[in-house]
Amino acid sequence: MRALKSLFAAALVLAAATASAQPVKIRFAYVVPVANWPSILFEKQGLARHLGKSYTYEAVRFQGTPPMITGLANNEIEIADLAFASFAIAVENAGMKDLRVIADEFQDGTPGYYTDEYFVLKDSPIKTVKDLKGKILATNAAGSAVDIVMRAMLRKNGIDDRKDVNVVEAAFPNMKAMLTSKKADVIPAVIPFSFDPDLRAASRVLFTQKDVVGGRTQMIIWAARESFLKKNRAAMVDFMEDSIRAVHWWLDPKNHKEAVEIAARVSKRPAAAFDKWLFVKAGQEGDYYRDPNLLPDLKALQANIDLQQKLGLLKGKVDVSKLNDLSIVKEAAKRVK
């Protein structure tokens, strides 16, 4: 009888295996190497138990988020690393009502962790935000998360971001040169560029993102389409389980040295570029807050998107409570424990 039972069980497993013989393809889009989870998540071998079995994984680098929205719409990628602003734009302007927030990438301004800084030159006459009238402000891209925060700060201080200042665009790695060569009076700086010792020596912080938002910003989230999640739920839970296990490994201070080595190898930069801050909790000297169980802060996300709308950078209201599916990441977290 027992033999029969196990035979039956084996047959069931076999049937299930053949039914899902083809592992689900997960293509995950990101922009910044190392700072974005998808670029390094499974670079530490042996953490992804289901990889190659129930799903296959590919990290795809994109030049900015707009092509990611096209990729999601066209089913060319399954998960995208989207800033809160891009997520709202994808839902509202691209009409992707079936886009779902499924996990956290990182949050800005969580107590004890890093918040983005806006720098002016040390000897600059600009003492407060009000002094910015008529000045040149650098931004990475109009409508981006960092840009929204800057514009919100201006409005708070009675400065019209369209008329009273001159906004120019530059990539984050060039921001320091923009400031020191006086092509811009204020620059935003994000990790790792804000840790540049030359920048620190030449400048001071005018304000931080936390000053503007008044708390956390759910900067970047993982997003996927509902149709994909429904169809491949089992594989997605497996993937999330592997991801959370990997995140635990990366965030564990015990593994710091190895984590830095892998980050250096992947990004082709020296280990010293990461050693001080990567996955380290050290206020303005350390990393952003990355949730160990990949759980996003939906309340913060809603507030951030509302701010975007208030600034006129988003037409309608985007209700995050209807646009999330955290059941997968929660179920996966239970499995890891």
Binding site: V32, R61, P192, F193, S267
Partner: peptide, 19 residues
């Protein structure tokens, strides 16, 4: 713009990281 491999990918990847 979008890639997993190639010299253009490498240029974008390294440029994004400021290397």
């Amino acid at each position: 713009i979008v890639a997993r491999a190639g010299l253009g990918y490498l240029i974008g990847f390294l440029g994004e990281g400021g290397v």
